[in-house]
Design a protein around this nucleic acid. Sequence first.
DNA 1: CTTGACCTTCCCATGGTGGTAAGCTTGATG
DNA 2: CATCAAGCTTACCACCATGGGAAGGTCAAG
Lengths: 136, 136
Amino acid sequence: MTQFCNIGEAAKRSGVSSKMIRHYEGIGLLAPARRTAANYRVYCDADVNQLTFIKSARELGFSMKQIALLVGLWQTPDRSNAEVRELAMAHVQTLDERIRDMQRMRSALHALAMRCQGDGRPECPILDTLADQDHS
Amino acid sequence: MTQFCNIGEAAKRSGVSSKMIRHYEGIGLLAPARRTAANYRVYCDADVNQLTFIKSARELGFSMKQIALLVGLWQTPDRSNAEVRELAMAHVQTLDERIRDMQRMRSALHALAMRCQGDGRPECPILDTLADQDHS
DNA sequence: CTTGACCTTCCCATGGTGGTAAGCTTGATG
DNA sequence: CATCAAGCTTACCACCATGGGAAGGTCAAG
């Protein structure tokens, strides 16, 4: 039943590039893959599942360090979901901060752009404001 | 009237670290600074202004490449504010995309966390969902 | 003259991903 | 069987912006 495949197939199935699969192995996020006689990496279904897990976590913006923790919890049968939840909520908070930062930039820049005529003359409130150390 | 200072003072006045000032010079964003006989970099008010400009642009999330363009426009007397505005609006759009991405992550993760009891048992919808290749 | 604070250059690290080159393996086709 | 393309291997280099640190020179105050 278990399907064995090489790195290209594992990449296709998990959505993680071969490059990154090797990288994940290099940084210890994945156990070193078994090899064929010709030194080709071999992956089983469980390995592909783990790659899928990592991919999903990346898509939620978790860092590699956090993902290492999540993978550890995932593979621990008697884990506590409280720990997972805490990790997740901490990341939600981080995302909120980043979103606020971006929004602050966005609205400041948009306000500047609205003050600029954009009519081809050299006068430009955007540049003037950037040059003014009082950020005003 | 013009105040000359060394890199530490320029850093203090502009808010850009000495480290980064040297880096900006290295990548060509700043003209190579004049030097004292002892090879210390010397900065004048205009240089500090340019550093302030760069700092402000960084705080709005512009990339170094965009900042190089902005600095170029800033220092061009017969520039067109339309060009500046276009750069700014393009960056607003980039920020909007990043914000949307973050918000998508945020809400997906928050929804997952809400489904998790966090009561100390091993059952965890967060991990289950990450492991499911159907992202559902 | 010593001391401490500053400056100089040079190298390394981060994080996550991509590219590329040189060389080996595999499988299919002529 | 020879060949060729596609895929694998490792080992580098690059991005972007920033920080850290080492080893050594300089300057000003005590």
